[in-house]
Design a protein around this nucleic acid. Structure first.
Length: 424
RNA sequence: GGAGAAUUGGCAGAGUGGUCGAAUGCGGCAGUCUUGAAAACUGUUGAGGGUCACACCUCCGGGGGUUCGAAUCCCUCAUUCUCCGCCA
């Protein structure tokens, strides 16, 4: 959520930013917001004056009662009736206006960074880096879902029976490989200074609002209506919410957290051939990194996170590329995002395995995550997060890229974690 | 799941209807003293809105109510603790 004061003072910048996201009604949206804010403040001022008057009268009444001047007190009491009426009306107006403003603020996405390329969708993303050799597969190489079946390491049908589509069962070496990847990622992250946390997999409404999943994207989350809790779509939600309503000291920066969690996504409306196998699931594992930074350091931190993810993909010896997302493809809360895509050779396509973003103070504003700056004033912090990494697609790429006629050769760094070097 | 108690500023803890945004202690910050530090002393020290700055307004777990007036009374929800039940 953008700060109202920021919108008020940077109207043109905000409109331009929203237009970069191809919002057709940017001007209207911003103008409405500024108008609502003005109205809200006008009503607030009016209400404050009435309340001040009413507070003063109440104090006087108290004094009169104390000094035994009942009659005078009763007279004053009558005067308060009218003020009460007024304040009630004004409070209602204020509430309505505040709600109207809040709703507008909720639907305004973050302003893209200057270097975000223009564009409508994924075709307009900018490839900023590419590395790794695409392996030449042997005759009869298979896509990962066939390999999963061949070696009996992932059972999609069994998942269908137990739960439904998109909930695979990992078996034997498949399960072990998955666990190895999780441990490997966590170890890499902690070695880089990220503090490991284990967090709840269900979150309340306030948490969902603070990180921006609610109120508008609730259809993407599984919801337990009985307790009004949501299954997390990413560890970003519980981990970032550690810092909700927190005021940090400046010397606490940088804050670096990592967490492994399963992620649950309804993925409503995305079915078809491209979601086959592990490409898109309702439940998947992910290791996440989250940072809270001083505003002046957040882009440096973003680069650091990207370098870190790069390091992992290099060690796995996977062919990958890094994209800078264009305005049209940028997530609601992000100012700048780098997507990491791993090449899945047997499918001949790129798979997104990580997304690293700087949210600047957009999330912090909803979180009320602040720090005391050098002037002793409260200022919003910057939040960032990234995947390091999303498991299923790494697994998919690994199975496909590392397949040989003898079996699937486990990348060297993973062997100590797996306890085997080939799946056959 | 049942019964009872509690929830106050960074922490501890007073405050049961009127001048309480809230005593006191600790902690933090600044100053005096000191070569420096400690101790002692003095001052200061919550958040948000609003204003050029003041004034002023809101917030004592969340929400609602009673009252001219609520941290204080009532309702409700959440959380914590104790006892009982159940349980990995």
């Amino acid at each position: 959520m953008l700060q109202v004061a920021f919108i008020r003072e940077n109207k043109e910048t905000v409109i331009k930013g929203l237009e970069k996201r191809n919002l057709s009604n940017a001007n209207e949206l911003v103008s409405k917001t500024i108008a609502a804010d003005e109205d809200r403040r006008a009503i607030q001022t009016e209400l404050d004056a009435v309340l001040a008057e009413s507070n003063k009268l109440s104090k006087d009444i108290g004094m009169l009662f104390k000094s035994g001047e009942r009659q005078k007190a009763e007279l004053l009491k009558e005067k308060t009736v009218q003020l009460k009426e007024q304040s009630k009306v004004l409070t209602d107006n204020l509430q309505n206006k505040a709600n109207e403003l809040q709703e507008l603020l909720y639907i305004i996405p973050n302003i893209p960074n200057k270097i975000v390329p223009n564009g409508k969708g994924e075709d307009d993303n900018l490839t900023v880096f590419e590395e790794g050799e695409i392996p030449t597969l042997h005759e009869g190489a298979l896509p990962h879902w066939e390999l999963a079946k061949k070696y009996d390491i992932i059972d999609f049908e069994l998942g269908n029976k137990i739960t439904g589509a998109g909930f695979p069962v990992y078996k034997g070496k498949g399960a072990r490989l998955q666990r190895a990847l999780i441990n490997y990622f966590l170890d890499k992250n902690t070695a880089a200074g990220y503090d490991e946390v284990q967090v709840p997999h269900l979150v309340n409404e306030a948490s969902g609002i603070a990180t921006g999943q609610l109120p508008d994207k609730e259809g993407q989350m599984y919801h337990d209506a009985q307790d009004n809790l949501f299954l997390i779509p990413t560890a970003e939600v519980p981990v970032t919410n550690i810092f909700r309503d927190v005021i940090l000291k400046e010397d606490e920066f940088p804050i670096c957290k990592t967490a492994y969690t399963p992620c649950f996504r309804r993925e409503a409306g995305s079915y078809g051939a491209h979601v086959r196998g592990l490409n898109r699931l309702h439940q998947f594992d992910k290791v996440e990194i989250v940072r809270v930074e001083h505003p002046s350091k957040s882009y440096e931190a973003l680069d650091g996170m990207a370098e870190h993810v790069k390091g992992i993909l290099q060690e796995l010896k996977m062919p990958y590329r890094i994209l800078r997302l264009c305005g049209g493809d940028l997530g609601f809360t992000a100012s700048l995002t780098y997507d990491f895509e791993l090449f899945s050779t047997a499918q001949d396509r790129w798979l997104e395995v990580s997304s690293v973003s700087n949210f600047e103070n957009f999330q912090a504003n909803r979180l009320k995550l602040r720090f005391k700056n050098s002037n002793g004033k409260s200022e919003l912090a910057h939040t960032l997060n990234g995947s390091s990494l999303a498991l299923p697609r790494v697994l998919a790429g690994l199975l496909e890229n590392c397949q040989t006629p003898e079996g699937i050769k486990i990348p060297e760094v993973l062997v100590p974690y797996c306890g085997f070097d080939i799946i056959n």
